[in-house]
Amino acid sequence: PDSPLARWTKSLHSLLGDQDGAHLFRTFLEREKCVDTLDFWFACNGFRQMDLKDTKTLRVAKAIYKRYIENNSIVAKQLKPATKTYIRDSIKKQQIDSAMFDQAQTEIQSTMEENAYQMFLTSDIYLEYV
């Protein structure tokens, strides 16, 4: 019951917390052309751990915004307009906060749980690995 595979099917969180699981899921998403959603999810986690006093942190917030939210990418399409506005305004005012991407990450995570994660568990990529 403690095998990695048992953990992968438990939840999306357990899958992403496992190196091989995250890697395989990434390969699957690359094929489905929505790997940006996973990279965004990890970027949010990485951002939360950054030091707010470090000038790098604002640059990373801007980079995340530019890469995933400002344009019409797959991440932007899955976010609520209010969530995008909130992040845009925070960056404009340079009001950087560790939790500024939390809501966006939650929205992306819910979509991943409902769609990509379920598809992954029945995909040939996963079944072949099993």
């Binding site: 917390g17 190196q19 995250a22 990890f42 990485g46 980079a63």
Partner: peptide
């Protein structure tokens, strides 16, 4: 000075699970 892409990549990598 690091490029934006490098900073973003570094941020993503820092959050990836490590081998136990």
């Amino acid at each position: 000075i690091d490029s934006e892409d490098d900073l973003l990549q570094e941020c993503i990598s820092s959050a990836m699970p490590k081998k136990k």
